[in-house]
Amino acid sequence: MMGVGAALACLWLFERGNLRRWGAAERVAFWAGWLLLFAWGLAVQGHVPLPTLPQFTRWLFRPLWERLLTVQPNIYW
């Protein structure tokens, strides 16, 4: 938690100059992006089982590639 706090302080310092220039939408997007990153990072650290993109695509396309993309044995070597 201290690490997260330190990181937040650092990135605030890091983007302080920019934050002043940005409009409201940009600022919100910036903080939302960082929040998402930290939430995800903590979830990964805590072994929270999140659904992943490869799982999703496997569920979506499995029947298709099982039918179309099976490697034929090559007897000509």
């Binding site: 997007a29 995800w40 990072g41």
Partner: peptide, 22 residues
């Protein structure tokens, strides 16, 4: 957004976490 730059650093972090864990 008018500018994509506020997103770059957090998105880079997200890409790294995705590359690590997916």
């Amino acid at each position: 957004l008018r500018d994509y730059r506020p997103l770059t650093v957090p998105l880079a972090g997200l890409v790294v976490v995705g590359a690590m864990t997916w």
